[in-house]
Simulated assay, not measured.
Amino acid sequence: MAASVYASPAEKSWHYLHRLICGAVLLFLTAPVLVVVPLSFNSVPFFTYPMSGLSLRWYEEFFFTDRWQSALQNSIFVAVSVTLLSTALGTLAALGLSRPKFPWRTAVMTILISPMVVPVVITAIGVYFFYADVGLLNTYAGLILAHTTLATPFVVITVTATLFGFDSSLTRAAAGLGASPITVFFKITVPLILPGMLSGSLFAFITSFDETVIALFIAGADQRTLPKVMFSGIREQISPTIIAAATVLIVLSMGMLATVQLLRRRSERLRGIRGN
Rank of each mutant, 00 (worst) to 15 (best):
V5G: 11
A7R: 12
P9D: 10
A10L: 14
W14M: 15
Y16A: 09
C22K: 13
F28P: 09
V33G: 10
L34T: 00
L34P: 06
V36F: 14
L39Q: 06
N42F: 00
S43W: 02
F47Q: 09
F47Y: 13
P50S: 12
G53M: 09
Y59K: 00
F62W: 12
T65N: 10
W68L: 03
V78A: 03
A79Y: 01
F102L: 01
F102N: 04
P103M: 01
W104D: 05
A107T: 12
L112H: 03
P115K: 02
M116E: 02
V118S: 06
V120W: 07
V121C: 07
T123C: 12
T123S: 13
F130I: 14
Y140P: 09
A141R: 11
A141N: 14
I144R: 00
L150F: 09
A151I: 10
A151P: 04
T152W: 06
L163E: 13
L170Q: 14
R172Y: 14
A173N: 07
G176W: 10
L177R: 05
L177Y: 14
P181C: 06
T189K: 00
P195I: 09
T207M: 02
S208A: 09
F209C: 03
E211T: 03
I214Q: 05
L216W: 03
F217R: 00
A221P: 11
T225H: 12
K228C: 02
F231R: 04
F231V: 01
G233K: 01
I234N: 11
I234A: 11
I238R: 11
P240E: 07
I243K: 10
I250K: 01
M254L: 13
M256L: 15
V260D: 02
Q261K: 03
L263Y: 04
R266D: 01
E268Q: 11
R269S: 13
R269A: 15
L270Y: 13
R271H: 12
G275Q: 13
